[in-house]
Design a protein around this nucleic acid. Structure first.
Length: 854
RNA sequence: GCCCAGGUGGCGGAAUUGGUAGACGCACUAGCUUCAGGUGCUAGCGGCCGUACGGCCGUGGAGGUUCGAGUCCUCUCCUGGGCACCA
């Protein structure tokens, strides 16, 4: 049997779509707009299967919505700044720009081979000065609007990548890209004040009802709002106070010690006179970096000798410890410990012999006997041992104590957030220059607008890590725009998350002189459906939400939320293989023999098969998408990506799965070739009388249209594929002698072509042409099911006896209870099961089930 | 430790509100087509018993609610992911 000629077909339709420019977007007041976007790729060299899955999902949405009559914007571009370009430059002596643009050309061709309905006229690359000049202008606007900070602060220093990482980019104490253990350094850094929007970013999550709950939960936790109080404790024998933040001010009467962070200013001050404390602080820093150490580190403290007065209990005094579990970055870097109602405080108190005073009595406990054992009590109850708070519940006690603290002038209610400001300074070359000038006399001076963009110098020395801009002999030396004196350009460049925080807005008017054509950005934004990996659940998505708000504040746009719908896809995984020497082996280096043993193709030696993991270079378990597309065609690759696994779950790439998709497309091709000559003409109408089989096939066609539409809407693409396959099985099995066969084939095959359009667009387009259509399937309207054909006139009803299935009966839809019951009881198997027992009750759910209870 | 998903045949996965568990596909088995080697067609395919009709068991485990539970409740085990001495 001939294979279907996918190469000719795919080349042909890609050419025609391109020539006719049918995916070029333009605002159209007659149709509702729909903006579909996949997270744009970093041009690392070649596309991988994750890209193929991502763009296939996006293209299904895009083509489906287009067929439904929406005016689609579906662009593609390049997240082109980034460290790999510098690494490649160092490794191969290529200029980062040359490397990046070569990769873009390569990957563009690969992506185009997938036959995506993209508007390539809107392509952008973020490393283009025509793009990043606007980013520099935005930064100056943010600066003027008070949304930028320059702080001398501790930063995470990645010793391998030679760059600063945001806190959010540090994973288990290691750089998120390099994996190297992160060190701490103090540097002057640029920060974007995302914390100015903490509350708003948190509250608005509730309105993002087309986002996955998991992502919203992750952001919520990341922002981490906690309501509590700030309380000042007078340090005995001194004039100053120790300020703490607590979420449990209600437990203040249960306080039995104070604890401060090792890097709290007070710790440092005391350490100056106390060598043992200095030693303790150093030890905390040493154990505090690696994750295992953190995991196993026990709660340790060091008594500073300082004592604080309890603000509400006359004469009570609390010892102040330096403790390794108190974080300087959160709250005030100091806490009071209430062992009765905080597990960590309890363990600390037990260890250092501090008293445990219960102040919340559980509802079922007796005040005379209640005591804290090994577990702190975290629940609600009545306050005890707490003076004026006694008898209140926890919530009321919080309010009352805060009011009292305010009265006394020693504290106030406060809400804090876990979210920290976004450090955007990077000490590297291949990024957007930060447009400021440092002048010894004038300080920080913004680059004048007319001098934008500040472009990167081409002539750089890239042979060693670190920032070539810092080493550049001339670029960094400029005259101060204010006083004209000798000054120095900022040599830091932006974190690449800055570029990806607004590219989707630039797509609306990619060639505009200003950052955005206001009408275009207001027309297309927000993105209706954004699709990408869940690994961006916090960083990229949160920064983008912040950026929209910051731009709004600066008058660029009028919306807050950039992405109305979000879909996060699962990863593409593959088995892993290791040879005898323990080296990872690529899938194309091994074969499975007849006994199911995997061997190296080269010499037949056995390899061990590991569990399926995310495709990655380090495991060498990658499959090159281009090889698959070459061997089977883009449609096969696309269909496989959509079959079987729900898109939000991980997908295991298997050769068998690709084969299955390939065989199905061949089968479709044969189906159309076999019946192409026997179709009824367009628009031929059915006779009044149809055979029962023909009626059933027509119903199946309309039912499939209705359910596939529904499943596509809900991202259940695997189910949509299953439904389409069911329909094609049915059409294949059609009785050729049925007088209505030509009509059913006409309607059935047209329906199949239309439903397959979003998934396998090339083949569907070819089939559409085979069916005699002049126009493009890509521009054809989505089929609509006729409600009349969705109604079944007969139904199969399950008959149970005591809840166990004993028979099924077929009856006209809508049969009454008596008829259902009579038919059910008449079933021989039902009668036999009932035997001589008496029927106690019969439950009838019309058109569904009859349950006889005996 | 905390949070969020999950746990259904040999495998990927179906199963709107509780109402016929296993759709669709993969793998496998048997047969057919002179079919040589990423082919097609037919049939079978959760387990056990039975020639069959049919019966019993079965959605990680244990209880519970219900005429009826993969679905709801309680407890528990396991897997994956995220976060982390966050006061």
């Amino acid at each position: 049997m001939d294979r279907y000629p996918y190469k000719e077909i795919e080349a042909k339709w890609q050419r025609i779509w391109q020539e006719r420019q049918i995916f070029a977007a333009a605002p159209d007041s007659r149709r509702p707009k729909y903006y579909v976007l996949e997270m744009f790729p970093y041009p690392s060299g070649r596309i991988h299967m994750g890209h193929v899955r991502n763009y296939t999902l996006g293209d299904v949405v895009s083509r489906f919505k287009r067929a439904q009559g929406y005016n689609i914007l579906h662009p593609m571009g390049w997240d082109a700044f980034g460290l790999p370009a510098e690494n490649a430059a160092m490794a191969k002596g290529v200029h980062p720009a040359a490397w990046t643009y070569a990769n873009i050309d390569e990957m563009r061709a690969q992506i185009q081979s997938m036959g995506l309905s993209l508007d390539w006229s809107r392509e952008i690359a973020t490393c283009d000065p025509a793009y990043y000049r606007h980013e520099q202008a935005m930064f100056l606007d943010f600066l003027a609007a008070g949304l930028v900070d320059r702080k001398e602060s501790w930063v995470n220093w990645d010793p391998v990548d030679q760059t600063v990482l945001a806190n959010e980019q540090v994973i288990d104490g290691r750089g998120w890209r390099s994996g190297a253990p992160v060190e701490r350094r103090k540097l002057a850094q640029w920060f974007l004040k995302i914390t100015a929007f903490s509350e708003e970013l948190l509250d608005a999550l509730a309105g993002l009802d087309r986002w996955p709950d998991t992502v919203r939960a992750m952001q919520e936790r990341w922002i981490g709002r906690s309501a509590g109080a700030r309380v000042r404790f007078r340090i005995s024998g001194r004039d100053d106070d120790l300020e703490v933040f607590t979420t449990r001010p209600d437990t203040l009467f249960g306080a039995s010690f104070m604890a401060i962070a090792p890097d709290h200013p007070l710790s440092a001050a005391r350490a100056a006179d106390d060598p043992k404390l200095a030693e303790f602080i150093a030890a905390c820093a040493a154990t505090g970096t690696s994750e295992e150490a953190l995991e196993r580190a026990e709660k340790i403290g060091y008594d500073t000798g300082l004592r604080c007065a309890h603000p509400l209990i006359e004469g009570a005094s609390l010892p102040v410890y330096v403790a390794n579990f108190v974080l300087m970055e959160y709250g005030t870097g100091a806490i009071f410990g209430c062992p009765g109602h905080d597990q960590r405080d309890l363990e600390f108190a037990r260890k250092y012999g501090r008293p445990v005073i219960p102040v919340v009595l559980p509802p079922d406990a007796d005040v005379a006997t209640f005591a804290i054992g090994d577990e702190a009590y975290l629940g609600d109850g009545r306050m005890i041992n707490s003076g004026f708070l006694d008898g209140l519940d926890v919530a009321a006690a919080k309010q009352r104590v805060i009011a009292r603290l305010e009265e006394l002038g020693v504290g106030r209610g406060e809400t804090t957030y876990r979210l920290r400001d976004w450090g955007v300074s990077r000490q590297r070359y291949w990024g957007c220059p930060i447009p400021v000038i440092h002048c010894a006399r004038c300080g920080i001076v913004p680059v004048p607008r007319e001098q934008l963009p500040v472009t990167l110098p081409d002539d750089i020395e890239i042979g060693r890590p670190g920032n070539p801009l810092e080493r550049h002999p001339t670029w960094k030396h400029v005259a101060c725009p204010r006083c004209g004196g000798a000054a120095r350009r900022e040599t830091d460049t932006f974190d690449t998350f800055v570029e990806s925080s607004w590219y989707f807005m630039r797509f609306c008017s990619p060639h505009a002189e200003e950052a955005f054509d206001r009408a275009a950005v207001e027309h297309w934004m927000p993105v209706d459906q954004y699709i990408g990996g869940v690994e961006h659940a916090v960083l990229h998505l949160l920064y983008s939400r912040f950026f929209a708000r910051a731009l709004k504040k600066c008058g660029y746009v009028s919306f807050d939320e950039p992405f109305m719908g979000l879909f996060t896809q699962g990863m593409v995984c593959h088995k892993t293989f290791r040879d005898r020497a323990g080296n990872w082996r690529q899938p194309d280096e091994v074969e499975e023999d007849a006994n199911g043993v995997w061997r190296l193709t080269l010499d037949g030696s056995e390899v061990t098969v590991g569990r399926s993991e995310k495709m990655s270079k380090s495991r060498r378990n990658t499959i090159d998408p281009s090889a698959t597309i070459e061997a089977y065609g883009a449609d096969t690759a696309r269909l496989f990506m959509l079959s079987d696994s729900p898109p939000e779950r991980d997908l295991e790439w298997t050769e068998a799965g690709i084969d299955g998709a390939w065989r199905y497309l061949n089968r479709l091709w044969r189906l159309f070739e076999t019946h192409g000559g026997r179709l009824a003409p367009h628009g031929a109408s059915y006779p009044n009388e149809l055979s029962p089989d023909a009626l059933e096939v027509r119903r199946a066609i309309h039912r499939t249209v209705a359910s596939v539409s529904d499943e596509l809407e809900r991202f259940h693409f695997n189910k949509a594929v299953a439904l389409i396959r069911e329909l094609s099985n049915r059409i294949e099995a059609l009785d050729a002698d049925d007088p209505a066969a030509p009509l059913l084939l006409r309607e059935g095959l047209e329906t199949l072509a239309l439903l397959l359009g979003p998934m396998v667009p090339h083949l569907a387009e070819e089939l559409w042409q085979l069916l005699g259509h002049d126009g493009l399937l890509a521009e054809a309207a989505w089929p609509v099911a006729d409600p009349a054909w969705l109604v079944e006139d007969r139904v199969t009803v399950a008959v149970q006896v005591n809840g166990r299935l004993r028979a099924t009966i077929e009856l006209p839809r809508g049969s009454d209870r008596a008829a259902l019951e009579a038919s059910a009881l008449a079933e021989p198997n039902v009668a036999r099961t009932i035997g001589d027992k008496s029927v106690r009750r019969v439950i009838v759910v019309p058109d569904k089930i009859v349950n006889v209870v005996v």
